[in-house]
Design a protein around this nucleic acid. Structure first.
Lengths: 351, 351
DNA sequence: CCACCAAGATGATGCGCATTATCGGGCACG
DNA sequence: CGTGCCCGATAATGCGCATCATCTTGGTGG
């Protein structure tokens, strides 16, 4: 006994059965009663009754189009998630985002479109801004597309960004205080007696790298360090070569500070291969936290509060979405936590 | 020099500037020209020109509401993804899904709402079926909600399911041939001379478990095995106790077959603790593949073609979405691949 | 010279919902 | 008895787009 393929019920269906207007149904379902617009309990009860018996579910599409909210928060990563090379990088952010969304009564919608036609990802593909499906969006990624961001803002679409981005014009973002954390790491090494500190900075520039650089130069200035011949740009993928490390050692380096923990880990390998003990012979520190999966000694480094960054990003976004007035963009900078670790020790090379 | 907050351009804006109608714009942008409806190249060029200069991007919401496609494939997991306990379980599916979606010109939209108010996840939360934001959806999860599935189907929403589900009424799903794969595992053990095979089945029933049971019973029948005192329901979390394993050994077991690889791994530990060599003294096999992350000996087991299952699910879905007529639901069963592994060997206990 | 047709385009309509402006009627008050 | 007012509810409108049914124009054949 197959039923006729009955359409899914709409508000007007409920209205007819309950003997009211579609407007009333909308008001009741959305709890839009206020001082000026009242629905007596009896009517409300009837509407709910019919809605339930019909198995009514609102259409999020229509709701959005009509200017309503669907209580969805989009998450867009500028790098593709599948295959997820940055798995351990993104994961903590996502945990924080989902938790906050859940707490605030929103669901999370992940946009995981792969590479665009030009190889890079873009929000605007085929002339469609898919993000609009959500009420607002959290943007995330190492290689943020500035044009897309500027455009989103111009369109008046609500979003927050994780990771500082120097976009012309103000936007709301959440970032970590890499500069201060970097200074702490250097302070730590200096307090251990190191004066010749090799600095393995990032090969390609980005805001977080620039922050670390700023922190390092500041600390260098404060301590009057000399870094002649001790600064080396290193790409995350290739890492430093044995020869380069040798050259830094020859220049008198007793400690190494690397932007990337994977670089630091590779450094440990190389130093071990040269018969140098860490932290006995020299110290190694990283300016971010190592991936969970990788085993090895606990690095001297700092932890980026990724989870909390995700949470704050969502909170800011929801605040913005739910406020009537247009809020001023704001920047939130969260502190990192220093990890002493086991790869740094006192300088034994004489002082 | 701040501009007035200009609205994002709509089709009608383009129409006005290009001196055509909104209809024409829609036709051109969507490439809807056909035999009966033609747009001369010059007009088309003008429309595109204006669209580009205005920075037009289609609104996916309006497009959906008007019955169009937004080339989005939703992915819904019945368990929450963050925190992702089932990380390694889901991941291969997602890779396959995204790859196929990409190949077919679709993007992937992940619905990762956490637990519903009642603790369990449901598609219909707060009376909204969020899945409708996508053109169609791939459903995924260990604990599928049958009511939701039936309802989706009744609503005429396009979806495919990964993992066989016995829902009243036909639906399209992709699953793996657990039964045959299970038989292969048993055959392998029998060919190694094992006659007393302990069977650690799943404690709580599910379709995949039932399939494995069916395969096991079939193989048992074919080989005339005796399983008296050798069958033990085991929960994935708790695993078997040492005492239970001891009892199975006392009952003469020379080989163990466990539904869950984690159970098999725990079994290896227990047997090792008893001083029993695997595969010297006895054999152990699992009826699914172990998580990638976990180190240890290669289990005798079979690989579930998760990636390909994801791919097929998307292909079936797109086929269904793009076809004019309503296609008949179909079931796709993909074969698993047997892995001989290193945890099974000849029965040395005499024959 | 009219009927007919194809090319090129358009006005109208509706998707399902939220919202705005409005309406009728009962009741208190002057 | 008329005026105002509030309660309860509604008709109308529009969100941005896709689609269906038409409409106009110029050419062609009879």
């Amino acid at each position: 006994m197959k039923d006729v393929p009955r359409r899914r019920p709409r508000q007007s269906d409920i209205a007819k059965l309950a003997g009211v207007s579609q407007t009333t149904v909308s008001i009741v379902i959305n709890g839009r009663e206020s001082d000026t617009i009242r629905i007596p309990p009896e009517t409300r009860r009837r509407v709910f009754e019919v809605a339930r018996s019909l198995g009514y579910v609102a259409d999020p599409v229509a709701r959005s189009l009509a200017g309503g909210m669907n209580h969805l928060i989009g998450v867009y990563t500028f790098e593709s998630m599948f295959p997820m090379n940055h798995r351990d990088f993104y994961y903590p952010f996502l945990v924080g985002i989902e938790a906050a969304a859940e707490a605030l009564g929103y669901d999370m919608l992940m946009f995981t479109s792969a590479t665009g036609s030009d190889g890079g990802r873009s929000i605007y593909r085929d002339g469609v801004n898919r993000l609009r499906l959500a009420d607002g969006c959290v943007l995330l990624g190492k290689e943020t597309n500035r044009d897309d961001i500027a455009r989103l803002r111009d369109e008046g679409f609500g979003f927050t960004l994780i990771g500082r981005r120097d976009v012309p014009g103000p936007i709301t973002y959440v970032t970590a205080d890499y500069a201060t954390a970097t200074e702490e790491v250097v302070d730590h090494l200096v307090s251990l007696g190191h004066e010749r500190i090799a600095y393995l900075t990032a090969a390609d520039p980005s805001e977080p790298s620039a922050d670390r650089d700023a922190g390092f130069w500041a600390a260098r200035g404060r301590h009057g360090l000399d870094t002649d011949g001790l600064v080396l740009p290193v790409s995350k993928e290739a890492g430093p070569s044995a020869e380069e490390v040798r050259r830094l050692l020859d220049a008198g380096a007793t400690a190494f500070v690397a932007h990337e923990s994977v670089v630091a880990l590779r450094l440990l390998d190389l130093l071990g291969g040269m018969g140098l003990d860490v932290p006995g012979a020299c110290s190694v520190a990283a300016l971010n936290d190592p991936p969970d999966a990788i085993p090895g000694p606990e690095l001297t480094c700092f932890r980026i509060p990724r989870r909390e960054m995700g949470t704050r990003a969502v909170e800011l976004l929801v605040e913005q979405l739910e406020s009537e007035a247009e809020l001023d963009p704001q920047a939130v900078v969260l502190p990192c936590t220093f990890v002493a670790g086991q790869t740094s020790g006192p300088n034994r090379k004489g002082s």
